[in-house]
Design a protein around this nucleic acid. Structure first.
Length: 925
RNA sequence: GCCCCGGUGGUGGAAUUGGUAGACACGCAGGACUUAAAAUCCUGUGACCCGCAACGGUCGUAACGGUUCAACUCCGUUCCGGGGCACCA
């Protein structure tokens, strides 16, 4: 009886489906465990072998946890809204709903092939109205909420209205956004409804504002950053300009501190936390007001406000730099400098953000105006330069050339004299950015270090009302609208210029069908073309749609209660499932998805809808599987190809060839010739009778012909082999190349396992004989190892432990059910099909999925004796087997009598004998 | 430039807390079975030195240095690769 994986796998997949073995209940007495994969965007390209890596890891862990007695939630769904489907519709005239459906079906088929234990009854699709109804509902909760800085949490917007009614907004009760005027309670009462709504808009967690977007006039659409290349559209190379459009924003900045401190409570990798905290970019320093001296008397009283993280260097300020967009600029510029300033602004405006950022050249213009030093009254020239960005801090800096390298280079370039505040610690060749340097030439802070001096400077500035301590964040509010079709419509109707929220019973706002997706006028999205849909309830619907991250910010909650028509997720159910215990996905979502999702969770927590404020307890980032490309060399201008080793002798062009035509490095010439018509008559220069290709690791991509489709691997070796091989490649978190050749080893392992039960010729081999001590030892050591390795996500060593076990049982000729049955259970998370088959062959009638993980017995895992390495001065010289319970004295006696040891000691007495029980013995001579 | 992660045989990788470096697997070489092939099994396989061989020795985890009885593991410096952030004040 042979291991015929194709029949076995098909049979059990059908059986599991028919018997609903993966159905998960919400109410059991079992402890819960929630394992989640980052759900995929169903692209048209389908899966390659890199995609399922994380899914396999989470699948193994889920199955393992089930065997360990947990009620495991392990769902899957689709992040189904997105740009590619919409673009595909524009290019091919196929509606996104149709292409998305097709892609999902294809994904599903590919996933099913691999034998995952998802509960498909809980599948969610963000583009289903039964799902996005609740995305819209959450939007409304955010719309009707305000972040109370005193409580450091979101509260209903009605609370801020109460405060306005009794105190206005200017008594310290309410944080007042920069764009809102201050008013008293009386003034609030006198405002019109429209005015009140406009003010409230500035306080909401999602709010409307204006923002710049990449606008392509020719395409009539807004483009994402990665659709713009060097200021031109990726499609068609049309010019792209900045355009101000009304946008919705998510007030994520209010959560900056909690998003930062929350990182301390979650089990993410250090680099992941690092990326997130860099993105949040918290820095502390001071805002300092510099009086401006200019010929225009109207602005002499308006201070120039700068942000600095180094207030201690205030006596080293030699010039000021403001961003070209700074609004004070045109007001303070002197007549003589007006022309050159305007020219510079025009130059900067014509440049894309990317160009500005990539610029290494130092440019800038003097404004003609000066600022006054707050302590010594010195006149400081005000410059403009593109290296200061309007979006960060106050859009203006105080430049300290001896303490900041960019300021230093600027000063050198424009020959601005440099004040030295570090004495001999400054060499006039580069800025000294160290923070432990003692200050000199700095008035009242001479001899102090950064921290002390900064505090003192801030204190003095505050006394003079010329500055204050300030914490700054790099993170800015996230744009939450897209001028697109294929996304969630907003539950908003504009009436008389005011955004009015729809009520809950008006949800969902269905995404209307469109025959042809065309952009609207003036950068409005395609929905603006639908007059009938647009005009609603004596107003006009919001025609923007929500961005891709809307649906993915809360999907983990919907899986808990996917069919609920009354709530986004029942509170009792979310209390039961709680946080995602294990989240597996790629690093590419480090700052986008994860931050938004964490924020939404915090909002829902603040508003009392869920009981936890961090969504993901533990995050594991699976590595990428790289493609192992094969490259051939064609002699330039000919149709002759040279083998890799000979390529230096000719002038050649390199071409990628399909990896499926290459065995190891040897090119299959026949396949190659029939690959493309142009190669039909190709000739080859061989080495040792073979044509060898060069191998190169790069991204797995169609363009490099290095894509390996899991369907093909599963067809050839079976799902169990595929699953185990993906794990055997190396640690899940590590990037690694795909090389199909090694898969044979894993496949042989499964065949070897099979042969413990059945011989190819003679048939049944397994027996119900009593197991011997050595056999039990093999089993129990394996249970221990597999358990430990699975617990710490070291699946590659888990596979290896199972291989060792099968090798040893083969050696022992052990075919006993007593040993083999628990082994099957151990293996079942990794290879569910073959183990289910053999489990039934052993006479079981229930599924192996519902058994329990075997428990290892210490007595079989500890040996009575240990073969110790005996090292002399740290170098292993021999091995001696010594009983484990031997004490120091006994060990010394045994060791010193050893022939080898005596030889090495050469008559000397060892200075010291180090004996570490169960580890090693070292003699110091 | 700053931050994070990594660098181990021909290859993927193992070594969980400082305690036998190279588990397991691929590949390769030799052999068995077979008319032959596939499949399977056995043996060897980090480099170098001595030797018929057993055995023995030296070196070896990117490089150099340090701590330690003992370092892939800890510390310092440098090099290389990958990722993130970026004229961020």
């Amino acid at each position: 009886m042979e291991y015929s994986f194709r029949n076995i796998e098909k049979k059990w997949q059908q059986n599991w489906k028919d018997n609903l073995v993966y159905k998960v209940e919400n109410n059991t007495s079992l402890p819960k465990y929630y394992v989640l994969d980052m759900f995929p965007y169903p692209s048209g390209a389908g899966l390659h072998v890199g995609h399922p890596l994380g899914y396999i890891a989470s699948d193994i862990y889920s199955r393992y946890k089930r065997l360990k007695g947990f009620n495991v939630l392990h769902p899957m769904g689709y992040d189904a809204f997105g740009l590619p489907a919409e673009q595909y519709a524009i290019d091919h005239g196929i509606h996104p709903a149709i292409s998305t459906e097709e892609n999902i079906n294809n994904f599903r088929k590919q996933l099913d092939n691999i034998g995952f234990c998802y509960d498909w009854n809980r599948e969610v699709r963000t583009s289903d109205s039964s799902y996005y109804k609740w995305t819209q509902w959450i939007f409304l909760q955010l719309f009707n909420a305000w972040f109370d800085r005193k409580k450091n949490k979101a509260v209903p917007i009605s609370e801020v209205v109460k405060i306005f009614e009794t105190h206005g907004n200017n008594n310290g009760e309410v944080h007042c956004p920069d764009s809102v005027v201050t008013f008293s309670a009386n003034e609030w009462k006198l405002f019109t409804e429209k005015e009140r709504m406009e003010i409230l808009m500035q306080y909401r967690l999602v709010y409307c504002g204006y923002g710049e977007v990449n606008w392509c006039e020719k395409l009539g659409t807004v483009l994402a950053n990665d659709e713009v290349i060097n200021g031109l559209s990726e499609r068609g190379s049309h010019p792209v300009i900045k355009k101000k459009l009304r946008q919705w924003y998510l007030r994520i900045t209010d959560y900056a501190d909690r998003l930062l401190s929350g990182l301390e409570q979650v089990d993410f990798s250090e680099s992941m936390k690092e990326m997130q905290s860099n993105w949040i970019g918290k820095s502390s320093g001071a805002e300092i007001n510099f009086a401006v001296q200019t010929t225009n008397p109207a602005y002499q009283k308006t201070p120039l406000v700068v942000y600095t993280t180094r207030p201690d260097t205030i006596f080293g300020v030699d010039f000021m730099v403001v961003a070209p967009e700074h609004e004070l600029l045109l007001q303070i510029v002197t007549d003589s400098q007006k022309k050159s300033v305007e020219d510079y602004i025009t130059l900067v405006k014509s440049r894309s953000d990317r160009e500005r950022m990539a610029e290494k050249k130092i440019t800038g213009v003097f404004s003609g105006a000066s600022a006054i030093h707050p302590f010594n009254g010195k006149q400081i020239p005000i410059w403009i330069s593109e290296y200061v960005l309007i979006g960060y801090g106050t859009g203006a800096i105080m430049a300290v050339p001896c303490g900041d390298q960019r300021d230093f280079l600027f000063a050198k370039h424009f020959a601005i004299p440099i004040t030295n505040i570090f004495g001999t610690q400054f060499n006039n060749e580069e800025a000294n950015q160290a923070k432990n340097v003692l200050l000199e030439n700095s008035d009242f802070i001479n001899g102090m270090t950064t921290q002390i001096a900064s505090d003192l400077v801030i204190e003095k500035l505050a006394e003079k009302k010329m500055g204050n301590r300030k914490v700054n964040y790099k993170i800015h509010d996230a744009a939450f609208s897209r001028q697109r079709y294929w996304g969630e419509p907003f539950p908003i109707v504009w009436k008389n210029g005011t955004a009015v929220a729809l009520s809950e019973d008006q949800l969902p706002v269905q995404l209307p069908n469109m025959k042809e997706i065309l952009p609207g006028l003036d950068g409005e999205g395609p929905l603006s073309n639908l007059n009938e849909w647009k005009n609603f309830d004596r107003g006009v619907r919001e025609v923007n749609t929500m961005p891709g991250y809307a649906g993915s910010s809360w999907y983990f909650l919907r899986y808990m209660d996917p069919k609920n028509e009354k709530e986004f997720c029942n509170r009792q159910i979310s209390d039961y499932w709680g946080q995602v215990d294990l989240y597996i996905g790629g690093t590419e979502h480090a700052v986008g998805h994860l931050l938004y999702s964490r924020m939404w969770t915090k909002c829902l927590f603040d508003l009392g809808f869920i009981g936890f404020d961090e969504p993901y307890k533990k995050l594991v980032n699976q590595g990428k599987i790289g493609g192992d490309s094969r490259i051939v060399y064609r002699i330039h201008g000919t149709n002759q190809f040279v083998s890799e080793g000979l390529k230096e002798k000719y002038e050649t062009d390199e071409l990628h060839v399909d990896v499926n035509m290459v065995n190891g490095k040897e090119l299959d010439l026949k396949k190659f010739k029939s690959w493309k018509p142009e190669f039909k008559n190709a000739s080859f220069l061989l080495e040792d009778g073979k044509y060898l290709c060069e191998s190169r690791l790069e991204k797995m991509s169609k363009r490099y012909f290095n894509v390996v489709n899991p369907d093909e691997v599963v067809e050839k070796y079976g799902a169990d082999t595929f699953r185990m091989y993906e794990m055997f490649l190396g640690p899940v978190e590590q990037d690694k190349p795909w090389d199909t050749k090694g898969i044979e080893g894993v496949h042989r392992f499964l065949k070897k396992l099979w042969r413990l039960f059945y011989e190819d010729q003679k048939g049944k081999r397994w027996t119900i004989e009593k197991a011997t001590e050595p056999e039990l030892k093999v089993l129990h050591k394996t249970i221990k190892k597999v358990e430990e390795n699975t617990e710490r996500f070291s699946f590659n060593t888990g596979v290896s432990a199972l291989m060792i076990c099968v090798n040893e049982l083969t050696e022992l000729k052990c075919y006993k059910k007593e040993i083999l049955e628990p082994l099957l259970v151990l293996l079942s998370p990794y290879a569910p099909h073959i183990t289910e088959e053999l489990f039934h062959e052993l006479g079981n009638t229930t599924t192996i999925l519902k058994t329990s993980f075997p428990i290892w017995d210490e007595k079989y895992c500890t040996e009575a004796v240990k073969t110790y390495p005996i090292a002399i001065n740290g170098k292993t010289r021999t091995e001696i087997t010594i009983p484990l319970e031997a004490d120091q004295q006994q060990v010394e006696n045994i060791v010193l009598q050893n022939e080898k040891v005596m030889k090495w000691l050469d008559g000397n007495q060892p200075k010291k004998i180090i004996y570490i029980k169960n580890k090693m013995i070292n003699l110091v001579v």
